[in-house]
Write a protein that binds this DNA or RNA. Structure first.
Length: 422
DNA sequence: TCTGGGGTCCTAGGACCC
DNA sequence: TCTGGGGTCCTAGGACCC
């Protein structure tokens, strides 16, 4: 059996931990630059507020309905997620974090479903009491069915946040009432195809001829079919090393039109990427740098800068990355046209372990020295706060290009922002 | 005026090999 | 009319997830 632990409306719940006055009230969380709505509390969903709506389109409506608005506070969410996952991981030997607010437990070691249910209830209590984030647990023979169980657990109060699909009878009943578009792994495209063939519920899908499913929806669709029929075949890795690392942002207002500003921005992204890479003890061989003008502004000249540069020796060095990233911008910059760049980013790929590095006969860099310098920089930045030591080029960038008008405090990670009690 | 960020996996098709 | 068979590797793009 698999147990899925899913935090309820995670970002909204994080904000409520330190704002209990917002319990039972509508809450929304915005994307970077306060652009779109990316998370909603139950009450906000009930008001009909859709995921991904641009803020400016619904601002009046939110004010009228007394909806609490927050800029995204990833420092806070990341820390609370870490606390939930750490409590969850103590409930079973085999724990797999799936996303910021979800984790799977392998329950195959338990002798009976009653025992699993008992432990699940205990586990839920521990998390509620220890972190204050409400969670729903779904338990079933496959991960796809466990996801489904957790959705039922959220839908019906009677489950008290723990829902288990353990018998054939329950499985069939669950499938029958479940819209096929809500099945894990079925997105918009697949749904449209299924709809065309008159397939509406998860049960309709699970009863299809497997050869036809295979032909029509390839290997992924076939896996979903198997999982719905109780055959476990979707794997999750324990702590997978990322195969690509990306840091990108949209810029506020019109965007960036000066070369130095864009160079400073990509230098920041490159530096952030290098830190992420070192944190997972990896090196990479390729760096991609891109910058776009806004696709919504058809009245302005549009342009795309994008280039991928190989490193001669796989690296995780901040300065090498910055040099490559700013080089791309400098090389592709057109001084004759005024472009407003709205979004830019850096992607690292061909990632491998830093334990084995292929040497290059003509490599002139002292890798040991480079490695020690990065280690010292990481240590200082970790102890003294984000980006105390950085390259000069990064200082060209304005202190924060992000618009965050509704930011809450970093209650759990910053001494200056602790909660104040009168 | 304003429109998110960070990932994974799979497939099809081209180029190439013997 | 009819034009081999069996591979590998790479890349772009699609689809999906949270």
């Amino acid at each position: 059996m698999w147990l899925l632990c899913d935090c309820d409306n995670f970002y909204a719940s994080c904000e409520r931990v330190f704002r209990p006055d917002l319990n039972g009230k509508p809450v929304v969380i915005l994307s970077n630059n306060d652009g779109c709505i990316v998370a909603r509390s139950k009450e906000a969903k009930a008001l009909g507020i859709k995921m991904g709506t641009p803020l400016y389109q619904v601002k009046d409506f939110l004010e009228k309905n007394d909806v609490a608005i927050f800029s995204s506070n990833y420092t806070l969410y990341g820390d609370l997620s870490h606390r939930v996952m750490s409590l969850l991981s103590q409930c079973s030997d085999k724990f797999y974090q799936y996303s910021i607010d979800e984790g799977f437990l392998d329950m195959s070691g338990f002798e009976s479903c009653e025992k699993i249910l008992e432990l699940a209830r205990e586990c839920r209590q521990t998390i509620t009491r220890g972190v204050g984030i409400p969670v729903t647990l779904g338990i079933a023979p496959t991960k796809t069915l466990a996801k489904m169980a957790s959705k039922y657990g959220k839908l019906y109060k009677g489950y008290n946040g723990v829902c288990m699909i353990d018998t054939e009878e329950k499985r069939l009943k669950a499938l029958e009432k479940f819209p096929v578009e809500d099945v894990w792994g079925i997105g918009r495209q697949t749904f449209e195809k299924l709809n065309y063939h008159g397939i509406r519920t998860a049960k309709d899908f699970a009863e299809l001829n497997p050869q036809w499913v295979r032909r029509m929806f390839k290997i992924n669709g076939f896996r979903i079919w198997q999982e719905l029929n109780g055959i476990s075949c979707i794997d999750v890795d324990e702590l997978p090393e990322k195969q690509s690392i990306c840091t990108s942002r949209s810029f506020s207002d019109q965007g960036i039109c000066k070369r130095e500003d864009l160079e400073a921005a990509v230098a920041n992204f490159a530096s952030r990427c290098a830190e992420k890479l070192r944190k997972q003890h990896s090196v990479c061989k390729l760096i991609t740098v891109f910058a776009y003008t806004s696709r919504f502004r058809t009245d302005l000249p549009s342009n795309i800068i994008s280039a991928t540069i190989p490193f001669s020796v796989a690296t995780n060095d901040t300065r090498e990355m910055i040099k490559a990233a700013t080089g791309v911008i400098r090389h592709h910059w057109n001084p004759n046209v005024l472009y407003y760049y709205k979004k830019a980013g850096v992607i690292l790929s061909e990632i491998s372990s830093d334990k084995i590095i292929e040497q290059n006969l003509f490599d002139k860099v002292d890798r040991r020295k480079q490695h020690r310098l990065n280690a010292v920089i990481d240590r200082i930045n970790k102890a003294q706060g984000y980006s105390v030591v950085k390259s000069a080029v990064q200082y060209y960038s304005k202190r924060s290009q992000l618009k965050r008008e509704y930011m809450s405090q970093r209650y759990t990670t910053n001494l200056a922002e602790l909660m104040k009690v009168k």
